[in-house]
Simulated assay, not measured.
Amino acid sequence: MRFAKQSKLDPADPRMGDKTVVLPPGAAAKLAMLRDRAAELHYISSGRGEDMHAARSALEHAKADLQKVTNPRLVGTIMGVTPEHLAVLEANVSELRGRLDRAETRSTEAREAAKEARLLISNIEKWMSRCSGLRVADHQGAEPKLRRGENGVEAVERCQRRIRELKADIHQVHSAPIHSNDAKVFASAYVEQLRAAGAPNLSLLIEGGVRRIEWPAQELVHTVAGPISNRNVPPEAAFAAWLQPDVLVAALHREIDECSDDDAALSAEDRAKKLTTLMADKLSTEREEEYWLQDLIRSGMNISRRIDADPRSVLGVSSDLPAPEDSF
C-alpha cells in the first residue's frame, strides 16, 4: 500500500509543468503541492502578506493617534486627554509594534524556508531529468509504525539521526582506499595501453620504402583511466612502456605495495556490496521520515523537508529508479 494518500491532479494543471509528465498522478500532485508551498513562502517572505500589511497599517495609525496628544504643536487643539487615555495609546503602539516584529520574524523565517523549498524542488527536477524515458511507478510498501512512547516529531528526529549516520557510513565506504591487488590490476592495464600508445609506426619504413620511423604525436592517450592529454603524460612514460613494459609494471607494483593500506582497503566487489546495503537502508529511512513529515504537515505543523531528501522518498515513487547524483 502507499504510505500516504495523495489527491490526483489534472495533467493539464499548469502547476505540473512539462517536467512532471514522467510522474504518476499522485507524485505529480505532490510536486505541485511543493511548488505551491514554495510560492506561498516566497509571498510571505516578500513582506506583501496580509499579516505584514495589516500590522504596518495599524502601527502607523496608532503612532499618528499618539502623536496628536504628544506633539507640542497639537496638544492645545485636543481637549480632555487624560493620563489614562495617553497610557492606552502608548500601550497600543507598543502592542502593535510587537505584532509587526512578529510578522517580520515570520517573514524572515519564511524567506529561509522558501529558499530551502526552491532548492528541494530544483534537486527533484534534476533527478527527474535523469529519469527521462523511464517508467516511473508508485512505491509500494507497508506504513511505518511509531515506536513505543514515540510521537511524530520524535519519529522524524529519529529518522534524521539515522540518515546522518548512514551518510557518514556511505562517505567512509566511498573514501576507503582500494586494495593493492586492484591497484596493481589497474596499473598493469594502464601500462599496456601506454605501451600501445608509445609504439612507433614502422609502416612507412616497411611498406612504403621511406627511410623514416614515426613516433606517436596524438594529443590524447586513451587508457583505463580515460582519455589523458600527452601534456600530463611525459613522452618518456609512453616510450618506457613500449620499450620495457615489464620493468615499468614491476616498478609501479613496488610503489603500490609501499603506499597501500590493505587493512583499511575495500575491494571493488566489497565496496559495491556495502554501498548497495547502505543506500537501501538510507532510502528506506527517508521514506519513513517523509511519512511522518506528511503526517505532521496534515496536522497543521509548519515543518520543512531536508533540501537533500531523496526525490524517490518525497514523491513516493519506486526504489528501482536511479538514485540522485549526490545521494551520499
Rank of each mutant, 00 (worst) to 15 (best):
100 L>E: 00
103 A>D: 00
105 T>G: 00
105 T>D: 00
108 T>D: 05
111 R>Y: 04
113 A>M: 07
114 A>E: 01
115 K>D: 07
115 K>S: 13
117 A>F: 02
122 S>F: 08
126 K>A: 09
128 M>I: 05
129 S>E: 15
129 S>F: 07
132 S>K: 12
133 G>F: 07
133 G>V: 07
134 L>N: 03
136 V>K: 04
139 H>Q: 14
143 E>C: 09
144 P>F: 06
146 L>C: 09
151 N>M: 06
151 N>L: 03
151 N>Q: 04
155 A>P: 01
155 A>V: 03
156 V>S: 02
156 V>E: 02
157 E>P: 02
157 E>Q: 09
158 R>P: 02
161 R>W: 12
163 I>Y: 06
167 K>C: 09
167 K>L: 08
171 H>L: 12
171 H>Q: 13
173 V>Y: 06
173 V>K: 04
177 P>W: 05
178 I>S: 13
179 H>K: 09
181 N>E: 11
181 N>S: 13
182 D>S: 14
183 A>D: 05
185 V>D: 01
187 A>C: 11
188 S>Y: 13
188 S>V: 07
190 Y>K: 10
190 Y>V: 09
191 V>M: 01
192 E>M: 12
193 Q>N: 11
193 Q>E: 14
193 Q>T: 13
194 L>R: 04
194 L>V: 11
196 A>H: 09
198 G>D: 05
199 A>L: 06
199 A>Q: 13
200 P>K: 04
200 P>A: 04
201 N>Q: 09
201 N>C: 12
202 L>P: 06
203 S>G: 11
204 L>F: 11
205 L>Y: 15
206 I>N: 08
